[in-house]
């Protein structure tokens, strides 16, 4: 065998169709999967937190252009996707005093608590700032006074799909909270909302833009005792 023919035999040229095919198949499968989830509103483009029921606590929340309505929310229950009613709270702009989110996860039959917290420890500042935020809850409690306060023009009884929160170029975005259309879907619209010492049960959290979020901490702890419910409210 000559040197040239030996080199041709060891150096492979051209496309590796077997490998490329495997990668392409995985890519196409992922694209189809993501497309399907997006089409079912399971996965929105900006979802940061969604799935199993989670605990949330916030020291204080001030939102401008606040909307509250009932929606059909897709969630994961025991690993299966299901749809159920949820109370969706949305705001064009959001300022938070501290944040704690926790969720129970089971890996190989062992329970873990994943907890995300943020804040500067100062109850007089609203240090976390975000735009276009929505969260799905089944209950939310505002302790103390103010508790849950609404300001500006407050409308109660409007349809969920007519709520006005975010806008594009000065024009209100249609149905920003993704409420079902038609009558029978109760909504509250308010220029400003101020909630204090919030604790709630949450199914999803979406935010388009987080401008500031200091003091982020993430912990994964065996068991279920490290949830936000068991901790003092974060500031």
């Amino acid at each position: 065998m000559s040197t040239d023919s030996a080199t041709r035999a060891t150096v492979r040229t051209g496309t590796r169709w077997g490998r490329a095919g495997a990668l392409a198949a995985a890519g196409v499968a992922a694209t189809i999967g993501l497309g399907t989830l997006m089409s079912q509103n399971v996965l929105a483009t900006q979802v940061t937190f969604q799935g199993n029921p989670s605990q949330v606590s916030v020291g204080g929340l001030t939102g401008n252009k606040v909307g509250i309505t009932v929606v059909r929310s897709t969630r994961s229950v025991d690993g299966k996707l299901t749809t159920g009613p949820a109370l969706r709270v949305g705001a064009a702009g959001l300022q938070l005093d501290g944040l704690c989110l926790s969720q129970k996860q089971s890996i190989a039959g062992i329970d873990y608590t994943v907890r995300v917290s943020a804040g500067d420890g100062n109850s007089s500042t609203h240090e976390i700032q975000a735009q276009d935020a929505t969260f799905d809850v089944t209950s939310i409690k505002g302790d103390g006074n103010p508790g849950l306060n609404l300001d500006g023009v407050v409308e109660i009884g409007v349809s969920g799909d007519s709520l006005v929160t975010t806008d594009t170029g000065g024009e209100p975005d249609p149905n920003p909270l993704g409420a079902p259309s038609g009558t029978g879907w109760f909504g509250i619209n308010s220029g400003v909302g101020q909630f204090s010492n919030i604790r709630g049960r949450m199914y999803g959290f979406k935010v388009s833009e987080v401008a500031k979020m200091p003091g982020v901490r993430i912990s994964v702890t065996p068991g279920t005792s490290d949830s936000c419910d068991s901790k003092p409210i974060q500031h």
């Binding site: 809850v137 209950s139 103390g144």
Partner: peptide, 8 residues
Amino acid sequence: LPNTTLSL
């Protein structure tokens, strides 16, 4: 709405 729960 001081000390108020909003629920479904």
